[in-house]
């Protein structure tokens, strides 16, 4: 289902202020699944990251805009994996849609358009990062044809 009036486009400098809030929310949301995802919770820091990505040819930031408001965000990096045949891989680092705009296919559109944008920049595959226990994300990506690709285990350093 396509929500009329929702525009997906590349982020620009004036979007940074609103989009940064969504970036922070992505992390506070995922903190729910594993404390290792807890973020610095600094909107300023998020703004810095976004600005850096806007000027970085190996990064893509997409926003979903509805009635002049940023309601969704996706940020991906083009990662070189010299020894993998699929290199470079587009890695979706963050994906977030505000609660009241969910269940309208906006996240799906963000992922699909991100896939397109990454492909045109040479990506051979698209990967997405999210907490291991986030079942909502798991079933979302599986529906879009993704499969488990690699596991990252973590522990806090000792002493």
């Amino acid at each position: 289902m396509h929500e009329p009036g929702v525009v997906i486009r590349e982020a620009m400098e004036p979007d940074v202020e609103q989009a940064a809030k969504l970036l922070v929310r992505f992390y506070t949301f995922n903190e729910e699944f594993d404390p290792a995802w807890s973020a610095v919770e600094s909107v300023e820091k998020a703004q810095e990251v976004l600005r850096a990505s806007l000027g970085d040819p190996s990064a893509i930031v997409l926003v979903a805009e509805f009635e002049g408001r940023i309601v969704g965000l996706a940020r991906a990096l083009l990662v070189e994996e010299p020894l993998l045949a699929n290199s470079p891989i587009g890695v979706l680092k963050e994906l977030y849609v505000i609660p009241e705009m969910r269940r309208r296919g906006i996240a799906t559109r963000l992922v699909e358009e991100m896939g397109e944008a990454l492909r045109s920049r040479g990506a051979k595959a698209l990967a997405a990062e999210f907490p291991a226990r986030n079942m909502v994300a798991e079933s979302f990506y599986e529906k879009l044809g993704f499969r488990p690709f690699k596991s990252v285990y973590i522990r806090e350093t000792q002493g």
């Binding site: 506070t28 949301f29 729910e32 699944f33 505000i98 609660p99 009241e100 969910r102 909502v136």
Partner: peptide
């Protein structure tokens, strides 16, 4: 829907979450 812990509710208490979304 704009409450700070809204995403937490989605995971932990979908009933409250749904009310937040529906009532705005």
């Amino acid at each position: 829907p704009d409450r700070d812990d809204i995403d937490r509710l989605m995971v932990r208490h979908p009933w409250k979450y749904q009310i937040a979304i529906e009532t705005k």
